[in-house]
Every structure is written in structure tokens, then in C-alpha cells.
């Protein structure tokens, strides 16, 4: 096929992306830096506002803790899955994929049922006589955190299983036959080889948690806002386009920074190449 035909194939996608993604984005972001003349005042106002800073820091904290907890829970579980006999492995992978395909409203709703005032935990504790009054766990940073970890753990597990499957069982056996304990062999052999996977997974969880909307909306509500729920509130409830644009820009830049930084770390650790996130 001739060269110009090749470019022709790229044309419909380019046009659609330009007109329906790039232009709208530009239209939304341009006024934040060029209201009348060039000015960053919208951004300095955002970063100097205590209320916004609290939300920004909460968002970052939730994303960071979620990524770390997903690593801690995901690494051993993925290792377990990758060492299972084939038949079991298939079942466990299916079991991990299932929540990923389940709607996030459903997954957040599950935690409303568990953490709510009349939820499973409060009912249980009241019946056991541990507490006299239901504990308010919903609409806190804690509930967002649980929901976010729940949301992204399967992604971490699937990413890691893909990497750990490549690690040869003989490596572990060699380490053990040379006298390393199972734990030591795991830490010295499997863990270093899984680092690219851990970083890919961490990028997915961190950026996902940074921009997730459904879970913080349902589990945090208006009491514990994060950037994504703040954008929605500013735009739809308050019609405050300029603030919504600033927050949108902050979210995009944060996502890019996280990807770049973690990819740099990955490239440093693993000279063979970049981790594709």
C-alpha cells in the first residue's frame, strides 16, 4: 500500500480525536491560563487555598496508600496464583478478573452495605454488644480508601500474574537447594524480577485512584471530596467553569508526572527498557 494510503487510514481517527478530544480540552483549559491576558492567577489561587489543598492532599494520600496496599496484598497473592497448577490457576485468574468486569457502582455499593450505619459491620458489632451506637465509617477518607483498594486490587493482581508467570520455577528451586529459605528465596529471586510488574501495577493503581470518580462519590460523598468529585461538583452543581478547568488541568498534570516518574524509576531499575503503562 502506498504511503499516502497509509496516512489516509490514520485520518478518521485523527479528525475525531482532534475535534472531539483535543479541541474540547483546549476550550476548557485555555481560559484557565488566558482569561483576558496570560495569567496564572487561577492556579496560584487554587494552590494557596487551604480548602483545595486539603482535597488535593487527600486525593494524593488515598492514591498513594491504595497503591502501596495493593502492592502488599497483590504481590503474595499473584505469586500464589502463578505457582498454582494450571487448572487452579485458570480458576483463580477468572476469580480475579470477575470484579474487574463488574460495574464500579456495584462494587462501591457493596461497601455501602458493609460500612453503612445499618451495614454489616455495625449490625455485627451491635449484636455482639461491642458498641452501643453505630460507628460512622461511611463518607470518610477511610471508606474511600477501602473502596479504592477494592476497586484496583484485581488490576494489580492481573498485572503481577503476567510478570510472575515468566519467572522459572527452577530459579526458586535452585535458590532453595542452595540453602535459602522459601521466604528468602522469594525476596532475593522473585521480588527483584517482579519489579517491572510492580511498577506497572503501581502506575495503574495510582493514576486510577487519582482520577477515580464513582467510588469517592458513593463512599465519600460531599463530606470527603477528592479532585474528581470536586470537578463534578464545580461543573454540574455550581457551574463554576473556571475552577473546574483548573482542577481538570491539575489532574492531567498529576497523572503525567506520576507516569513519567514511575517510568523513570522503572527504566533505572530495569535497563532493558521502559515499562509500558
Amino acid at each position: 500500500m502506498k504511503k499516502h494510503v497509509a496516512y489516509l487510514f490514520l485520518l478518521p481517527g485523527t479528525v475525531l480525536l482532534l475535534f472531539f478530544l483535543m479541541v474540547p480540552l483546549f476550550a476548557v483549559l485555555w481560559p484557565t491560563v488566558f482569561p483576558d491576558g496570560f495569567s496564572l492567577s487561577a492556579y496560584t489561587a487554587f494552590f494557596l487555598d487551604d480548602y483545595y489543598m486539603e482535597i488535593l492532599i487527600r486525593t494524593l494520600r488515598i492514591a498513594l496508600i491504595s497503591a502501596l496496599v495493593c502492592i502488599v496484598l497483590g504481590v503474595p497473592t499473584s505469586y500464589f496464583i502463578s505457582r498454582c497448577p494450571t487448572k487452579w490457576k485458570g480458576i483463580l485468574i477468572a476469580v480475579s478478573i470477575f470484579p474487574m468486569l463488574t460495574n464500579s457502582v456495584v462494587r462501591s455499593f457493596a461497601w455501602i452495605n458493609i460500612l453503612g450505619r445499618n451495614g454489616v459491620i455495625n449490625t455485627l458489632l451491635l449484636n455482639l454488644g461491642v458498641i452501643d451506637e453505630p460507628i460512622g465509617m461511611l463518607y470518610t477518607e477511610f471508606s474511600i480508601l477501602i473502596g479504592t483498594i477494592y476497586l484496583f486490587l484485581p488490576i494489580m493482581i492481573m498485572t503481577l500474574v503476567g510478570v510472575m508467570d515468566q519467572i522459572d520455577n527452577d530459579m526458586m528451586e535452585a535458590a532453595e537447594s542452595l540453602g535459602a529459605s522459601k521466604l528468602k528465596a522469594f525476596i532475593k529471586v522473585v521480588l527483584p524480577m517482579s519489579v517491572p510488574g510492580i511498577i506497572t501495577g503501581a502506575v495503574l493503581v495510582f493514576t486510577g485512584a487519582l482520577t477515580a470518580y464513582t467510588t469517592p462519590q458513593l463512599l465519600g460523598g460531599n463530606k470527603s471530596l477528592v479532585l474528581a468529585t470536586l470537578v463534578y461538583q464545580k461543573a454540574v452543581t455550581l457551574n463554576d467553569w473556571s475552577s473546574a478547568g483548573v482542577i481538570a488541568a491539575v489532574m492531567i498534570v498529576l497523572t503525567l508526572i506520576v507516569m513519567k516518574v514511575l517510568n523513570l524509576i522503572a527504566a533505572r531499575l530495569d535497563k532493558r527498557g521502559e515499562v509500558n503503562a
Binding site: Y213, A244, M251
Partner: peptide, 11 residues
């Protein structure tokens, strides 16, 4: 790379 909520908002 663009967060879904931002895509929704821009559109």
C-alpha cells in the same frame, strides 16, 4: 492519559 472525568467534563 486524560482522566475520564475530564473527558466527560470537556465534552
Amino acid at each position: 492519559i486524560i482522566p475520564g472525568i475530564v473527558v466527560g467534563y470537556a465534552l
